[in-house]
Computed example of a mutant assay.
Amino acid sequence: MISSSPGFIYHTPVNVAQIPGLNTLGISIARLDFSTSGVNPPHTHPRATEMLMVLDGSLHVGSVTSNPGNRLITKVLNKGDVFVFPVGLVHFQRNVGTGDVVAIATLSSQNPGVITIANAVFRTPNQLIPSEVLTRAFQLDKNVIEFLQEKF
């Protein structure tokens, strides 16, 4: 159990950065602890397929298929349920139960990488993506794009 404010997720990775002996073995694992309403925002793993198993609680999960369909596939997982997120596909998790959720994610790489979509689009460390590009991509007003860039 975790004690934190609602909406919190605690991520405990075990990959080649924590255990160098995993190098070249093609595996890693992470424990995910979600408080009530906790969300793991849309993200992708560029070098690994993820298999997620819920150990306790209820978790709404979803993944978006690749172009041209971009279909959303979702399911509510309960204790003991498993879901697979194929390599490179955007996916998320959200606690929809009344208590905390504990899940284990196994990944098919010792260095799976993670790209959090909102951070990648709205917060780049060296230079922001031009608002004109994002305005067209998201079909939003330039002021909204600049507001989002400030938030991240």
Rank of each mutant, 00 (worst) to 15 (best):
D141E: 11
L140Y: 01
F138C: 05
V121D: 01
L148R: 02
R123K: 11
R136P: 00
A137T: 12
A120F: 03
N143D: 15
N143L: 12
N119C: 07
D141G: 06
T124Q: 11
A137C: 09
Q139A: 15
A118V: 07
N119T: 09
Q127N: 11
L140T: 01
A118G: 14
I117T: 09
F147L: 13
Q127G: 05
K142I: 07
K142C: 01
V121N: 02
I117N: 01
T135P: 00
S131E: 08
P125L: 12
V133F: 03
I115F: 08
N126L: 12
V144S: 05
F147R: 11
N126F: 14
N119I: 02
T116W: 11
A120E: 00
Q127V: 11
A118I: 08
I129Q: 06
I145W: 00
V133E: 03
P125T: 12
L140I: 02
N126A: 09
N126I: 10
V133G: 02
R123D: 07
L128A: 15
P130M: 01
N119V: 10
F147Q: 15
P130D: 09
A120D: 04
Q139C: 12
N143K: 11
V114H: 04
E132W: 06
V121Y: 02
K142M: 00
L128W: 12
K142R: 03
F138R: 02
F147T: 15
I117G: 04
A120G: 01
D141Q: 09
S131A: 13
I129E: 01
E132C: 10
V121T: 10
R123N: 09
T124K: 11
Q139I: 14
K142F: 00
I117S: 04
F122D: 02
Q139T: 14
L148F: 10
L140M: 10
F122L: 12
T116A: 12
A120I: 03
V133P: 02
V133Q: 02
N143E: 15
R123E: 09
L134D: 04
N119P: 05
I117A: 11
N143C: 09
V121E: 07
L134F: 07
T135A: 08
L148W: 01
V144N: 07
I115T: 14
I115P: 04
P130L: 03
T116E: 13
V144K: 07
F138Q: 07
T135I: 01
Q139M: 13
E132T: 15
V114D: 10
A137P: 03
Q127A: 13
F138M: 08
K142E: 07
A118Y: 08
P130W: 03
L148Q: 04
E132D: 15
P130V: 05
L140Q: 09
I117L: 13
I117V: 14
F122K: 05
V121W: 06
V144Q: 13
L140G: 03
L140V: 04
V114K: 06
F122A: 05
L128P: 15
Q127F: 13
L140N: 01
E132Q: 14
I129V: 15
V144R: 04
T116N: 13
S131L: 01
